[in-house]
Amino acid sequence: MTLLYFAWLRQKIGKSEEQLELPPHITTLAELVEYLRGQGSGYADTLADTTRIRAAVNQTHVGLDTAIRNTDEVAFFPPVTGG
């Protein structure tokens, strides 16, 4: 799985992209967030408040209840502020 982080999430986690072999027991985005929170304080702090975070799977906006697979591209980012 490819994980992407943008804006302040990228800065707090300290990287813009990483590869993850998705553990088989993780089937939704919410479970992935929970798993990542256990990967160190950078992740735990950044992903602490999911009301401040939005996600996309394969470049489409989705909710945290979305099912995911190891072949997906998953992105985490703040609410968008373009225009």
Binding site: F6, A7, W8, A56, H61, A75, F77, P78, P79, V80, T81, G82, G83
Partner: peptide, 26 residues
């Protein structure tokens, strides 16, 4: 324009004399 503001994945960081900070969605 309304959809660019709320759906297109862009993020703005403001730069002022006292430093930078990310713009919050409205």
């Amino acid at each position: 324009m309304d959809y660019l503001k709320t759906r297109a994945p862009f993020w703005k960081q403001e730069e002022r004399a006292d430093g930078t900070h990310w713009v919050e969605a409205r």
